[in-house]
Design a protein around this nucleic acid. Structure first.
Lengths: 230, 230
DNA sequence: GGCAACAGGATTGTCAACAATTATGTCGAG
DNA sequence: CTCGACATAATTGTTGACAATCCTGTTGCC
């Protein structure tokens, strides 16, 4: 994913690397507990080790990777309790935002959302999980940005990132992707209709599947292997 | 846990520097728009430049400083609109947390809060703004941590940090400190009495003064510098 | 007098070598 | 055969030097 500019300063490259790693985690290409070696990533992503280092620090702050001093970084394995807590907060935040999106929304917002959703639907149709993931993120950002409070949007994104590690199940499932697509379309309809109650309800409902799928999978995993890996 | 060890790894030292800078901003020792020079800070805080660099990056992420590539870092000047938005989110988050604090609270929590508040009250009495600030932060962390959702607590702290730059007015005012102290005591009482409504109301009210003081000051400043927009 | 080009200094950004730490493999003693 | 000490390799952490960039004051030209 070559970046556009010939000269990008470190900060931007760090974000790029972090975003790439994030994607690879969401798509299940990097698995939980997998070790992330700085030099290896530096070579693979064609970037200096220092940049990878900072990117890993950022992902640690977000909660996608774990880092222990002198030992390195790993993809974090989320436990169900944590996931539940995070989704609880997400629900509160997204509800708050959805309640502040101005209905009778500007046409600009609607056409923007429809355009983004077009990309998303196409990705879902062609089974391109990566493209679907990207379009999905853009859709939600655009949707919540309409609430007019950038700090709230930032928080929503932060919390969404936190559970990206728990999404490899749904992010690659055609079934789940199709459901997400339909719900997006429903949100657009709700905005069009000026139906706030329905919009908020949809946002809430939208969070459910990926949370439940992960929790179910995690609990099944725990049941399967008795001893706590340490 | 070793005492402030002779060997602390960079990550911890970064946090330390960031915390120090944060304090100096809150206390008004570093003023908005003031330039923060890496080498200078490195020498003053007895730390390598690289550490200062990372600390500044962290404070930028939080929103306390602004950084432009190749030009350096400045203490960010918050505009009133932003401050209002942030406080709106803070109110929502802290309300959510306060609603989840278990009433009939464990004695452990109460005695902990009372102990912390003892330190805070003492600091207020002796006019030690720095100590008061520290105790204040600890008080709120302990209070909200009781909600049982660490991710929510993290968000609350993040949002609190964002407006630290807007708090130099109240952080050094005896009047405001005394008010904060009384409100803290009120919260403890409310928990003791199992009065959730009162607790939530107090948390809400507690946010008001520093927000209003800053907005008033900022708007006065704007009015002064921009003659007559009638 | 004003303005543009230009040096000089100050500050930030990049890098690669070096040091410190931890994991891994080997060997000998019991 | 198992255990533990030791040597070795792999990886992360730290540092200082160097390069790139930007601000400032100055000079020379119109």
């Amino acid at each position: 994913m070559a970046v556009t500019a010939l000269k990008a300063q470190t900060a931007e490259r760090v974000r790029g690397v972090a975003a790439t790693l994030e994607e690879e985690i969401v798509l299940g290409w990097l698995m939980p507990r997998e070790r992330l070696i700085e030099e290896e990533l530096a070579e693979r992503l064609d970037v200096k080790r220092h940049v990878v280092r900072e990117a890993l620090a950022e992902l640690e702050r977000v909660g996608l990777v774990e880092r222990v001093p002198n030992r390195g970084a790993f993809v974090k394995l989320l436990d169900p309790v944590e996931v539940r807590q995070i989704y609880l907060v997400r629900e509160a935040l997204e509800t708050l935002a959805a309640e502040q999106i101005p209905l009778s929304a500007p046409d600009r917002l609607l056409s923007q959302l429809e355009k983004i959703q077009g990309v998303h639907s196409a990705a879902v149709a062609s089974g391109d999980a990566r493209a679907a993931f990207r379009a999905n993120m853009i859709f939600h950002e655009a949707l919540f940005a309409a609430c007019g409070n950038p700090h709230l949007v930032e928080l929503i994104q932060t919390m969404a990132q936190k559970v990206h590690g728990a999404r490899s199940i749904t992010a690659a499932s055609a079934e789940h992707l199709a459901l997400a697509r339909d719900e997006h379309l429903g949100m657009i309809e709700a905005i069009k209709a000026g139906d706030r109650v329905r919009l908020v309800a949809l946002c809430r409902k939208h969070l459910g599947p990926s949370r439940d799928a992960y929790i179910a999978a995690a609990e099944a995993r725990v049941a399967r292997s008795k001893p706590v890996t340490r």
